[in-house]
Amino acid sequence: MNPAFSVIFLTTLIGVGQGLFLALFTGQSYSAVKLLPAATSVEFYSIGGLIALLFLVGGLIASFFHLGHPERAWRAAAMWRTSWLSREVLALPAVMGLLFIYALMHYMEWDIVLFTSEAGAELSVSLIVGILGMLATFALFLCTGMIYACIKFLQEWHTPLTVINYTLLGTASGFVLATAFATYTAPGLLKFFGIWSIIITLTALITRVASLLRNRNIKYKSSAQTAIGVRHTKVKQIAMGMMGGSVNTRDFNHHMSALFFKSIKWVFLVLVFVVPSILIWAGIEEANRTLLFSAFIVQYIGLIAERWFFFAQANHPQNIYYQTV
C-alpha cells in the first residue's frame, strides 16, 4: 500500500495521546491503592490530560487530510454496526470527551471520595471517570487496529498482532512522554514511569518482531492464476489496459526502492526500541529532562517510520492486475 502521511500522523498522534492518558491513569490508580505516594501534583493530571487531549486533536486534524470530503465527515459515524472505521470515528470523540472531563476534574479539584477501604484504598469519582476513559482508550486501540486487521486479503495485516502492536506502541510512546513530563510535575514518579516505559517498549519490541517474522514467511493466497482463472504455471500480464497509470497503480504501492524499504525496517527497530530504552534508562538515573524528552522525540520519529513500513509492507492482491503497462 502507499503510506498516506495523514493516516501515519493520525495513528501515531492518537497513540501518544491514548498512551499518555493510560500513564496518567496508571499513576492515579497506583496512588489510590497507596502503592505510590498519594496526591502527586494537580498539574501532573490536569496539564498531562490537556497534553494528551492535544495529541488526540492533532490526530483528528491529520485524519481530515485523508478525506476527499472532510465536510461530510460526520456521516462516518453511521455504519458502526459493520465498519471498524465508523467505530473508530465514535470511539475517538468518546476518549476525547472523557479525557477532557478527567483533566477538568483534576484541574478544578472536583473530586469526591466515594469509598475508603480499611487499608486506605480510595475510590473517587475521578478514578471512575478514569476507568471509563481507560476502557474507551482500549476500545479506540482495538478499532484502529481492526481497521487494518479485518481486511482478510491484506494478509500482512490480517492478524491479532496488528491490534496488539497498535496498542503497545501507542502506550509505549505515551508512557515515555509521561516520564519526560514527570520531571516537571511529579519528580517522585520518574522511576515509576521510566521503568514502565522500558517494560512496555521492550514488550512492543517482542510483538513487533513477531509480526515481522510472521510476515516474512507469508504465503499469498492469490496469484495471477486465480486472478484471471487460467490454469497454467506461466501467466504473465502484458498490458494492464492503460498507459498513464491510475489510482490503482498509485495508491497500492509504496513506489520506493527495495533498499529504502528494507532500511526503514532497521531504522524503526533502532529508533522505536533501542535508542529510547537506553535514553530513558540514562535519563531516570540522572533525572535528566533533555535525555527523557529526546527519548520521546526519537521514539516518535521512529514510530513514523514504523507506520510507514506497516503500510508499505502490505501487499494488496489487486496489484496482480496491475503489473505491466
Binding site: 485523508h66 476527499g68 456521516r75 472505521l85 481486511i151 491510475s246 494488496h316
Partner: peptide, 26 residues
C-alpha cells in the same frame, strides 16, 4: 452524495475494481 472519499472500500476490494475520482473526490 454520501461518500466522504476515505478510500477504505477500495482497500477492501481484492479486484481493484474501485477507482476514486480524483476531481470529485468520491
Amino acid at each position: 452524495d454520501k461518500c466522504i472519499g476515505c478510500r477504505y472500500c477500495s482497500w477492501a476490494c481484492p479486484y481493484g475494481a474501485r477507482e476514486i475520482d480524483e476531481h470529485q473526490k468520491v
